[in-house]
């Protein structure tokens, strides 16, 4: 009995000593936070999305105050936050390019097939490791919703086996872009109106067999685009948003309707 008590006492004592030392250390070794950092931090939205390229709002505030990072990197906060930060620092406000994310895949369960049954852990990162996922198209959305879990504002919903992003709610933080194992979620300017809803780089026939909504690389959009914003590379159309004028001609001529107009 005594041996148990001794063991109990020793471990408790070690734990207590460690705890007290840590408490003392946190008091004596604490680094006072910079005043500017605190003020800048109060301007930021605090969702820790990482769109600015730093690990959360605290890090970004620190980088602005101490290392002179740019004030317009907070995409979710948009112009108002950038203006607030500029106000705190006493510099001129810079414009923020507002972005939104879209899922570049329209291969819903009605137009694609499954090649195998996946019964494992229900995440895209796990599903994509086994033969690139259960879908016939190895480029497309797996529909397990890793992006929806990552989204800080619940802008992503899953329907018919693919993820949809509501452009009205999306804040353009890019959390989902980092999570997607297929790299089909992309950030585009909020002013954009047309998107290519396909990522299949296979030749037209092969792509079409796997998904009726696939881009077949026919180059009709490229030929019809009046501003030369669309290029077809590797059998896949891509839009250069710096040239795109949102005329919507490409969506009209696309034979498989894989170019969509955002409402």
């Amino acid at each position: 009995m005594t041996s148990i008590l001794i063991a109990f006492a020793v471990v408790t004592a070690v734990g207590l000593i460690a705890g007290v030392l840590l408490a003392l250390a946190s008091y004596f070794l604490s680094v006072p936070e910079n005043e500017t950092t605190k003020k800048v931090r109060e301007c930021l939205p605090g969702i820790n999305c990482g769109a600015c390229g730093y690990n959360g709002c605290d890090e970004y505030a620190k980088a602005i105050a101490e290392d002179g990072a740019k004030t317009n990197l907070c995409v979710p906060g948009a112009d108002s936050v950038a203006a607030d930060i500029a106000n705190v620092l006493g510099v001129e406000a810079e414009d923020v390019v507002e972005m939104m994310a879209f899922v570049g895949c329209n291969g819903h369960s009605g137009v694609t097939q499954k090649t195998n049954n996946y019964n494992g852990v229900n995440t895209c990162s796990a599903a994509s490791m086994i033969y690139g996922g259960p879908n016939s198209c190895k480029y497309g959305c797996l529909g397990c919703g890793d992006c929806a879990v990552a989204c800080p504002v619940d802008a992503i919903c899953l329907a018919d086996g693919i993820a949809h992003i509501n452009p009205k709610i999306c804040i353009g933080c890019g959390m989902c872009v980092k999570k997607c194992p297929k790299n089909i979620i992309k950030l585009i300017p909020q002013t954009a109106k047309v998107t290519v809803m396909c990522n299949n780089k296979e030749k037209g026939g092969a792509a079409r067999k796997k998904c009726q909504n696939a881009c077949i690389g026919c180059k009709k959009c490229e030929l019809n685009c009046p501003s030369g914003a669309i290029k077809v590379e590797n059998n896949l159309a891509t839009i250069d948003y710096s040239k795109c004028t949102n005329c919507g001609l490409c969506a009209e001529v696309c034979p498989t309707k894989c170019i969509h107009i955002i409402n």
Binding site: A7, A18, L21, L22, L29, V31
Partner: peptide, 24 residues
Amino acid sequence: YMQTIVFILVIAALVQFIEMALKK
């Protein structure tokens, strides 16, 4: 025989302490 538990405790506290000291 209490080695494992005590060591885990001590190492965890130690790493926390090192982190604070380095930060300062």
